[in-house]
């Protein structure tokens, strides 16, 4: 098994920072959903990770902990994630993206 980044919607949706989306070396891996937090009553949307593209470098964790100081991102073993986004389930909209969450591990 291997580590991937996992973003806490509860912490992320309470802020509007979006810093992690700008510091990931992988393209279209940390995506942003404008509605993710609003559905749960938070003010903002939330970032999320397309785990099939995450190489597990944890750069976003450093950025969230030290630059943004939100501590919203943790590295998690991929089989410990009950639900996650993968690229095939991401839908692009006008100014936002949405993802259907499903178990990232096959079988």
């Amino acid at each position: 098994m291997y580590l991937v980044a996992n973003i806490s919607v509860e912490i992320c949706a309470a802020t509007s920072c979006r810093l992690c989306t700008q510091f990931c070396p992988e393209a279209n891996t940390i995506l942003y959903n404008n509605e993710a937090g609003k559905e749960k009553g938070y003010k903002y949307g939330s970032a999320y990770v397309a785990v099939d593209r995450c190489k597990g470098c944890a750069q976003c964790v450093w950025v969230c902990d030290n630059m943004a100081k939100h501590h919203a991102i943790k590295m998690v073993m991929i089989d410990q994630l009950p639900n996650a986004a993968i690229t095939d389930n991401v839908t692009y909209g006008e100014k936002s993206t949405t993802a259907q969450l499903a178990s990232p591990v096959i079988g």
């Binding site: 979006r18 070396p25 393209a27 470098c57 750069q59 692009y92 936002s96 993206t97």
Partner: peptide, 25 residues
């Protein structure tokens, strides 16, 4: 607006955490 549109750059074979890739992105 990063994270809300499809980027020109696709998946690539650069090392995990490479700052050069971030700059190219």
């Amino acid at each position: 607006q990063m994270g809300t549109f499809k980027e020109i750059l696709e998946e690539h074979p650069m090392c995990a955490g490479c700052a050069m890739t971030l700059f190219i992105r």
